[in-house]
Amino acid sequence: MESMEKIRPRSPLIAKLMTAIAFLMLYVPLFALVIYSFLGPSAGPGSPQAWTLEWYRRILVNGEVLDAFNMSIYVGIWSTLVSTLLGTAAALAIERFRFPGRQLFDMITHVPLIMPEIVLGLALLIWFVVLRITLGPFSMILAHTTFSVSYVIITVKSRLQGFDDSLEEAAHDLGASPWQTFWKVTLPLIWPGVLSGALMAFTLSFDDFLITFFTAGVGSDTLPLKIYSMIKFGVSPEINALSTLMLGATLILVVFFFRPSKGAPTHA
């Protein structure tokens, strides 16, 4: 809203200084990580270290890391698909209709966002054991879908709030069936919201540690779980390389996400 551009004072020097320190705290570790991932072993004390891609090569031929990566992608894709479908439908229902229990339902959809993650993780663990669902990829997909749906609902809802109802009415008046109206009018209009909801769901799934930790079971590590268990053994150049790759993937996602900024909500 440039037309409403308000008076914006210059920020005091101390605020700028604090901001600079904060960004240093956020970024210096990440820069160190990237630099160290390209550093070869030291030949001896005082001798310069050579640049190398050796650590990346080792990571890319590490079977366990590749398995963990594939597991993360697999769980991410399935939970994104399910949560985007459920979440979009629910957001449409909440925004477009009045029905008994609507407010309660809206409230419940926020529960996974405010509850401590660890509680959701162990609640699902208990429930899967009660249901005799074997812990593994399937249980992780169920768990990830549960928290992702909430984020999809919020994202799609905020897209629907700026929605012009008259377009649907016009479609109806022109003789379109409800189904046609949905596919030809509603869906294209909310599509950016659905897309950013899906992207959010995938990122959350791919990144999640705690809930995955509880619901993964034995032998189905995702990438964050794998990195965690590697770190437990200490700092190593291979982890530097793997972490840098994860960081690179994040950068690509952020660029991708901030490109279609046509009113698409960026975050909750």
Binding site: Y27, P29, L30, I231, S243, M246, V254, F258, H267
Partner: peptide, 20 residues
């Protein structure tokens, strides 16, 4: 610049500090 660390895996970020 604020969102990039927000989206970076937190295990990775914790590790970066450990390394630093």
């Amino acid at each position: 610049l604020v969102v990039i660390p927000f989206w970076t895996n937190f295990v990775v970020r914790a590790y970066a500090i450990k390394l630093l």
